[in-house]
Amino acid sequence: MGIYLQLLIDGILLGGLYTLVATGISLSYGVIRVINFAHGEFIMLGAYAAFWAVTLSGLDPLLMLPAIIVGGGLFGYALQRLFIQRILNAPHVNQILLTFGFSLILQNIAAILWTGDLRSAPSVVSYSVTELGPLMVPHSRLVAFTVAVVLVIGMLAWLKWSELGRATRAVAQNHRAALLMGINIHLIYAICFGISASLGAAAGSLMSFLVTISPWMGFPLVVKSFAVVALGGLGSVLGTIVGGFVLGLSETAVSFFIPGGSGWAEGVSFVFLIAILVFRPRGIFGLAVEEDAR
């Protein structure tokens, strides 16, 4: 019994981070309709920012979080205004290739500047654990989970109650009608891309004390987030949250129950992704069929 509870806790703690990453992707795709393959690099840059903060100034990565969120947001805002803006009406292939190009550029700038060495940024919470009977809850994971949950809830509250958040939902539903409301949709796009990037960077800084950091850490996370978004259904924020936990729990279960499972666990998200795209493109991933190639 204890072991199942432990798996549940592990899965949920992992799922929180997946939700955070996927929410960022979901927001930018849901509003701007451009899949951002470079989202993983926002995570990677956030992780390096935390790492350098620790290394150079000795500050805790958690203390750096607000600065990283702001920095990520500005970076995303600029990226949208300078580049993504120009390909909004371009064919899908151009959009995909553009963000793919960004991904390559950011990865390799990181590789050149900071080498490919694996690094990690210990936090004060890295080495403490709470034991509840047979259960172990590492504080690092608990803190990361909590921050992730707070950020996701904050984003949802912004969408739900703020003037800009309401305008964002309007743009996502019907951008022409949003124009008629006097909404500057390009500003909304840039803000959303900024928020998406800042969520990614925040996820990265949380991961800096959980996993090893490398210039290539981001891309697999993006593919996993696609699975999360697909699981929950595109455009459904609640679905994304559920999807994050489903993936976290499934990966945890696979790595426990299957021999040599941690390797196989890496494949769980891809299997989910294909299975959903293939079997439930209309149901769960409603937009896959509706949306035509532009």
Partner: peptide
């Protein structure tokens, strides 16, 4: 039935 970006993601997952 997949096209555009969704086909692309399926091939990536494959």
């Amino acid at each position: 039935s997949l096209r555009g970006i969704f086909f692309a993601i399926a091939t990536l997952a494959f």
